[in-house]
Each structure stands twice: as C-alpha cells, then as structure tokens.
Design a protein around this nucleic acid. Structure first.
Lengths: 207, 207
DNA sequence: CCTTGATTTGACCATCTGGTCAAAGCAACG
DNA sequence: CGTTGCTTTGACCAGATGGTCAAATCAAGG
C-alpha cells in the first residue's frame, strides 16, 4: 500500500519518522488540526525537509490511511470459515480489542476520518470493506443457519464488535474519566467475552 | 447551561440560527475544520454579525457543548432505581439509540470533542459525568447483587450502551457503506434489544 | 418623524499555514 | 580531493481565517 519503497537508508528512516509523527499528530488533532510544522518537529525535521519526502500533507495522510486499512481488515480476513464458529468470532473480537489497546492512535486516526464523512476513504469502504464484510457475514450467517451458533444478524454482529472494541480506544479519555483513571482493558475483555458468548449461545447450553 | 437568555426576538432568532449552523458545521468538520465564515453563511449572517452575538468561535462551540451535555445525560438520569431493572436498562438503551437516529449531529459533535482529548469538556467528564455514572452503576450493581438481573459489570454495561448506540451515528458513513445505503436502524434496534436482553437474563429464563 | 439603542456591515489586520525555491551541505565514489 | 547526486534549509509567498472597528442602517417608542 505504500508508494515506491524507500531507496536509501536515510529515506527509509525519515519516511518512517514522518509517518510515525503524522500518526501521532493526525490521531490527536484530526486532518485539519494537524500542521506540517508540528509533524515535522515531532519527526525531527524541518518543514521543507518533510515536504522533500512527501509531496504534501495529503500525501502523508493518504499513506497512513492506506497502511492502516490493511492492518484494520486483517483480523476480519483471518476469520476462518472452516473453524469452530464461536471460537472464530470470539477470537476476532479479542484481536480487535487488542488492537484498540495496542494501536489506539491508529484507531483514532480512522475514527477521525470516518467522522468527517470518510472524504479520503469512501471508495475503500464501499469497495474492499463492503466486499469483505459481506463475505464474512455470509459465513456467519451460514453458521447460524446450520444451527452452530444462535441465530444472529451477521452485519450487526460485526458492527457490534467494531463499536465495542474501538470505543475503548476512541473514547479513551471518557472511559478513563469515568473509571477514575484505572485501566479499562481487563474489565472490558471479561465483559465483552461474556456479552458475545451469551448472545452466540443457545439457551439450553447456558450453565 | 446557556448564558444570559436572549433578550429580543431578533437575538433569540439569530442566536438559535447560529447554534443550529454551528452544530451542523462543527459536527461535520470538527472544531478546527469549522470556519466562522461557513457557520455565518449557513446561519444567513455575515461573519462580523455572528461575532456580535458570540464573543468568538470558542464561545459558539462552548455553548453547543454545554447544551449538548445536558441532553446527553438526560436518559441516564432518567434510569429509575425503583423501576423494573431490565425495563429500565433496555429503555435507556433504546432512548440512546433513538438519540443517535434523531440527533446524529449532536453525537458527532460530542465524538469529535472526545476524540481530540476532550479539551473543553474534561472537567465535566471527570465531574458531573463520573458522578452520575457512578451513581447509576451502583443502582445496577444493586440489582445484580439482589439477583434481579444476571451479574454484570455495571460500568462496562454502560460503556456498551454508549458504544453500540453512538456507533450508528458517529460511524454512519461506514455503516451505510457496508449495508449499501440501507437504513440500519430497524436492524440495529432488534439486534441491540436481543444482545442486552440475553446478557441481562439468567440462563434458566431463556426460552 | 426623530431620537436612541440595537443591529449590520465593509474594510481591514495579524497570524497561521501549506507549499515553493534557490542555494547550501553532505556523502560517496572514481 | 573533486564531481555528482542526494539531503537540508532559510527566506519567502499566497491564501485562509479569527477577530476588530468605525460607520451605516434599522426598529420602535415618544
């Protein structure tokens, strides 16, 4: 998804530094709130130097989003139609929750983009994303039809997983404010496990 | 939560028009992405005229957020300790979902604010919001302890309601892209009802 | 219809910000 | 150790943007 791979060592280092700085700043202040000066400073470069590596502010953002989208979809791609239904779905949820914990900046970058109406991502959402979700929703729907999990609306099940896991990254300030600063993740993991487990179970399985 | 109530008819009308326009523009582009010119144009005023009614861009934003917070907390405030536990929680969820459908701009305005680290709302989150949530969490915890609902982590239950309902407003573009433009709300309501119902039920109640 | 206070605006300003450019540094290879 | 091409930068620019202000306009009571 990245353009031509960097050639020299210096290029590799500086492009990486810029993307890291861009991730930080874009996630923190949104596209418009981010300034090239700030990104450059954080990357340890001057603004013109940054623009030597990326054509424009847009270009940094684009690159970030493209890389991110891949990373974002990977866990859903990994949902295995041949696996044990409940394990597969719960593993997907857990991987997404882990991503919120380990890559909150990426989550917020994406959230910013969607909130603003996905001006730079709309095609990917309507293309790759929709295709992938439809495909996996069909798998989950198949499991439900076969009686291997309780009947569910596959699309909304997937939305639930997105919403519940990303909430802990995107609304972290709020969650921490309410919890008084405590780490929300242990509780979140237990709770989400419980929620999805019960909704996927058949009544008679519950103990 | 609003400052001194407007005096004249003209003031009432123009302040309202500015807040309506501000809501639209701030929700759409975030605080930094919003421009006074745009807000003024949308309100049918000139920029200096807008600044006759509000000291600054900040002031418009502040007023909007303050009003919003009240509206946002109302449904949780309404959760009645004396009510039937499951009905109370499900009603709260339904009211929040209705707010996502009917007031998506407010939801996105709030999401923007939190995403950026709640620079103008932090005190309210750590004060009023935390207090209210702790209070209602205690109520829910009491219900669980009394065996009137299945045991739950009250704080995370509340986070779940926020996450799942607001997702449909904040990530509307994504949801609609995946669903191919269809209205997500009927499906969402059924699914969320099902999710929360099952997680609050005791196994032996399930039919 | 004129006075008074509320309302509106055109002109203007300072600052910020994305982006350009020519010149200067610098690394490495022949 | 000088040439060559990659890297870095200071100076600069144009447009956008938040905000000011004095003057003009307007509404309504007396």
């Amino acid at each position: 998804m990245t353009d031509t791979p960097p050639q020299t060592r210096i290029q590799a280092r500086n492009r990486a530094a810029i993307l890291e700085a861009g991730l930080e700043v874009f996630a923190d202040r949104g596209f418009r709130g981010a300034t090239l000066d700030r990104i450059a400073a954080r990357a340890g470069l001057s603004k013109p130097n940054l623009l030597y590596y990326f054509r424009s502010k847009e270009a940094v953002h684009q690159t970030l989003l493209a890389d991110l989208l891949e990373m974002w979809l990977a866990p859903l791609r990994a949902l295995d139609p041949g696996g044990e239904p409940r394990d597969e779905i719960l593993r997907y949820m857990r991987r997404k929750l882990a991503m919120s914990r380990e890559a909150p900046r990426e989550s917020r970058l994406f959230a910013n983009e969607i909130l603003q109406g996905a001006p730079r991502t709309r095609p990917a959402l309507e293309g790759d994303l929709k295709r992938l979700v439809d495909e996996k929703a069909a798998v989950i729907g198949g499991w439900a039809a076969a009686g291997r999990i309780a009947p569910v609306d596959p699309h909304h099940l997937i939305f639930s997983i997105w919403a519940l896991t990303q909430h802990y990254a995107d609304f972290e300030v709020q969650v921490r404010a309410v919890l008084g600063g405590a780490d929300p993740y242990p509780g979140a993991e237990a709770w989400l496990d419980r929620m999805f487990r019960t909704v996927l179970e058949f009544p008679e399985e519950r103990t």
